[in-house]
Design a protein around this nucleic acid. Structure first.
Lengths: 213, 213
DNA sequence: CGTTGTATTGAATAGTTTCAAGGTGCGTGG
DNA sequence: CCACGCACCTTGAAACTATTCAATACAACG
């Protein structure tokens, strides 16, 4: 989208699209907003979260470039989308997008695959949160995020972690303190190294096996 | 699907479809099986679960009539599907189904909405497991399952719970004992009544407010 | 009427959260 | 350029919650 699709016909879709940029911690849309557009993330990371009435928060995902934001079954968004650092998204007017899709089955298949991918991630997250202890959750998070990151940005020595410990905790169902303790446990065990803005994997295999716990 | 869609054109799709019946605890497909068909549940309940290497299990969903089974992003199923009691599913040959879809955009939109619905359920499940205590999880499960059940079968005095306590626990990330304790706590508090094969709601409102915990 | 699978209940244990205090890094303004 | 404030992170100890282990009860079915 917005540059990633080569097909000539797609050019006409791009006419419907607008690139929008966000800086750190800006709201892209809110839970319960009416859905008027389809968003595709072209650059940066977006936090997707739900707020509970008492202030607790569940982060349901971190979107990476290429991801569509806000598949939903109704007329309202089910969660908030907020930029984590600089972000560029490609926004399509909703009905125009779907009208276009009906004439471009290839794209529709692609969107469907994307939905399937989202669903798979959500189910793996359920398994992470539902059946693993704190150590396994943190290890699982790091391994999962590295896989997704490298699929988009290629392999690199250090894995950026643009989210805070609090956000990691709100994603995997732990407190900030527990996340911190487990990360530093891995550091003491020489599985990872904490560097500014991210981590470096020393013994990824052993971390993967921790992630089974 | 298989009777639920009136459209004449759909008749030709039905030609690709086969109704298959299962009795209790039969495998419909397994995790990692190649995806050769698309399934739509027409009768009964299907358990969707992932098994971890050490024997633990995460149930990622209970499918009800009308649900498609096994949206996936790859060529393999991401989880097992097993019948809970008598089940009838409508099975389409995969490529034929997608070829048909390209010529029937209405159906494609419907499938997309369905995927969005699945995703929404998965995200609510994350919030349930990630940010709620045992009481809130069990209450949330009961309320959620009642909502879904009544959307399919209409309101009834007693809500059937065709799954065991163990399955409830494996769905909401608790042990069987904790599930039992919380259910019986609700019984003692006169919020619900346990009846053979299900429960009856006495004070649904208060249960909903427990579900916030 | 006994067997089998499922559910309940109690007591001890383990793991995570909570509360509290201190540390680190970074940008801003004096 | 240093000091200060602020946000984020780390660490320790106490409190709490869910799990584990163990025993018993119940229901369905031959």
């Amino acid at each position: 989208m917005c540059g990633t699709v080569a097909d000539d016909q797609i050019k006409s879709l791009e006419a419907h699209a607008r690139v929008i940029r966000f800086s750190n911690e800006q709201v892209i849309y809110r839970q319960d907003d009416p859905i008027r557009s389809v968003h595709n993330l072209s650059h940066g990371i977006v936090r997707l979260d739900k707020l509970l009435s008492d202030g607790r928060r569940q982060i349901v995902g971190f979107a990476l470039p290429g991801d569509f934001l806000g598949f939903a079954d109704g007329e309202k968004y089910a969660f908030n989308a907020t930029s984590l650092g600089d972000v560029a998204i490609c926004r399509f007017e909703r009905e125009g997008f779907f009208k276009f899709l009906t004439n471009h089955p290839f794209l529709l298949r692609r969107l469907h695959d994307r939905a399937g991918h989202e669903l798979k991630l959500a189910q793996e997250q359920m398994t992470l949160i539902g059946r693993k202890n704190a150590r396994g959750r943190v290890a699982g998070f790091l391994v999962m995020f590295r896989d997704r990151w490298e699929r988009v940005n290629g392999r690199s020595a250090t894995l950026p972690l643009p989210m805070t410990r609090l956000e990691i905790g709100d994603y995997i169902g732990l407190t900030i303190e527990t996340v911190s303790r487990e990360i530093n446990h891995f550091v003491r065990e020489k599985l990872i190294l904490v560097v500014p803005g991210g981590i470096r994997f020393i013994d990824a295999d052993r971390l993967v096996s921790m992630a089974r716990q």
